[in-house]
Design a protein around this nucleic acid. Structure first.
Lengths: 223, 223
DNA sequence: CGCGATATTGACTACAGTCAATTTCCGTGG
DNA sequence: CCACGGAAATTGACTGTAGTCAATATCGCG
């Protein structure tokens, strides 16, 4: 999941390859709360999220947790480094994914289209991580929360009369661990955004964005 | 540049391909302070740093700067996303690099060894950026500075009687922008490390690490 | 409707940032 | 080789943002 947006970084949905059955990813189902893989596991497959949302996390030895990214439909996850996974991956809700052999990334596995699609996804992932670094290094708490909601709104929100609605499948604590904050600080930022008229809550997990422009401005730190 | 270390993530020095002259990178020279490329430039080549050190940076519209990474000898830099550079790259000291055609990454360009080496470098870069995210999201100022010095010490330091010496080609302000801190906070962390007997300074740019174990502990937050 | 989990709010603390004053470094020229 | 001067680094005093700990409030599931 990207943290800033450009016209170019939208993921491609649907099967990655124009070719037939050999390369089309095998559907995989992961129930909410179940792990798809864990840090240190050997990478056998890459996945494209089809439905649902997954969470990629890393831990420090003393238990501090960082959510590295959330995997939304279209996102490719599971890139190896030295053959192994470097994050845990579990599902926030019931999730289906397309699985691709790891060799499709390395050698192409006889499918150049798939090979290229996976490579480009890896390169976009580098850029996405750099965005995240920029955000964590240089943005305030309010800017981080606004950036996060802004991306979700634009990429995954749905229109509801004149506003935009987004469902948050993750807890405040997940958001905090993604943004390098605490749950309390995330909560306070939500309150600030509500009081500024940017958004309102419809239950704890549903956000109605009333002023997307203002949200984008706050994400960029113009307020 | 990685921010945590494992046995596996050491870059490969020297030419990336076993093959002959076609794929061997063309040497490129960049003087200290000169740019190799800028954000938004079309990516024509990837580079492996041979000698010297480069700096990859991103800016927010309002001028806030984040140093994304430092490129040390062996590191591969210049990965495209959607065909373009997403950082500025300039040299901290006179630097030489091997240049590879961008197509060597996409198609292999007739050299499978080079193709694979570049791909693996891209995958390691994802992991390195995730490390950086973890550090910025969840480590204290002292831990960040200690982590930074720890990696430099182990990867690029040289033995000097019983200690280890490292030369810092970057300013305090570069370190601050890399670690998401201010120059003052970096300076205070250096002072703390000196007073704890972990290291001493030999001029502003040369560090003598007197207790590498303690440094590693402080990097992990065990103090 | 009730209960446990999750989220919010409040009061206070602390870590890192800001602004300003030295000090040190280090390249240049005498 | 030393002295000078501008830049970089360090230190100090103070502030502010986000963290901590604790008390409600709300959610959403059975």
């Amino acid at each position: 999941m990207y943290v800033t947006l450009s016209a170019e970084n939208r993921p491609v949905h649907g099967p990655l390859s124009a070719r037939g059955t050999t390369s089309a990813g095998l559907p995989t189902l992961v129930k909410a709360g179940q792990h798809l893989y864990r840090e240190g596991d050997e990478v056998e497959r890459l996945y494209q999220v089809s439905n649902g949302v997954v969470r990629l996390t890393r831990m420090l030895e003393d238990g501090r947790r960082q959510v590295i990214s959330f995997g939304y439909p279209g996102d490719i996850i599971g890139f190896p480094a030295d053959g192994r996974h470097h994050t845990d991956c579990d599902a926030l809700v019931d999730t289906t994914l397309f699985a691709y052999r790891r060799t499709a990334l390395d050698t192409g596995d006889g499918d150049p289209d798939l090979h290229l699609a996976l490579l480009e996804a890896a390169l976009r992932e580098i850029s996405a991580m750099q965005d995240h670094v920029m955000m964590l290094g240089r943005k305030s708490a309010l800017e981080r929360v606004a950036s996060f909601l802004n991306v979700l709104t634009i990429s995954y929100g749905e229109d509801i009369d004149t506003h935009r609605r987004i469902d948050l499948p993750m807890s405040r604590s997940d958001i905090a661990d993604f943004l390098g904050l605490t749950t309390e600080t995330v909560s306070r930022a939500f309150t600030t955004l509500r009081k500024a008229g940017v958004m309102s809550l419809d239950g704890a997990q549903t956000i109605v964005v009333r002023d997307p422009c203002l949200l984008a401005e706050m994400a960029a730190g113009e307020d």
